[in-house]
Amino acid sequence: MAQYGPPQTVSQLEKTAKELRRDVIRMLYEAKSGHPGGSLSAADIVAALYFRVMRHDPQNPSWEKRDRFIMSKGHAVPIVYAAMAGTGYFPKEELLTLRKLNSRLQGHPSAKDLPGIEASTGSLGQGLSIGLGMALGLRMDGSDSRVFVILGDGEIEEGQVWEAAMAAAHFKTENLIAILDRNRYQLDGSTDEIMNVCPVVDKWKAFGWRVLDIDGHSMHQVVHALEAAKEQTGRPTVIVAKTTKGKGVSFMENDNEYHGKAPSKDEMERALAELS
């Protein structure tokens, strides 16, 4: 496992993302439940945030100057746990306690249980409002910390997301950065089929946000967009990251059966082989 240290280069991050994906597969196999699809689609973004872009100190999770991170689509928390273990928030062995009795690694993020988790999520639609509150509070204190929020493309069907979007533009929180994991699937099926969320880019623009439209699996584009998002433009920024649900494991890619199904032993072994 790459050790947390100086910000990683794009090619290091690509390797790291693969390792995080492997951790996710192992964790979910061990837990026997959980959500692989949305964890894997967000892996490159999460790797770039934790190993390069975010200012944070795994030894001191409540460091005042840290950037804040919220996994608003809380079911994808395994990829966050993998990044946290990889950067040293807790020992890697603890990853295998996911979803087990008395574990700090709850099935959905629990701020009460695990230092470094900034907000308890899992009821979709709430993270952007919480992030907006953090962004406002940090600005009041003269802090230059940023707030990063990962949203699901099914999640943005919740009205609350757009209440927060409108307010963030109104309050000009340029320190708020949303990343939309645009994997085109929700729980019951594809977003096109269940609830059409198009046109995504135009919606955010109409709500007053700066929009960066990228390939969420091109590490080069991910890093570039996240760094560009830190520029002070007087507006909040959303990165619309086109992704593939289940990315990296061929039989999980775009097969929404794996939205919320843990891999069997055989599937785990095949997945790990593909990710090696």
């Binding site: 026997k32 979803r99 709850q106 099935g107 959905h108 009821s123």
Partner: peptide
């Protein structure tokens, strides 16, 4: 419901 935890 079990493993999904408090939010669900």
């Amino acid at each position: 419901i079990g493993e999904d935890g408090v939010s669900q």
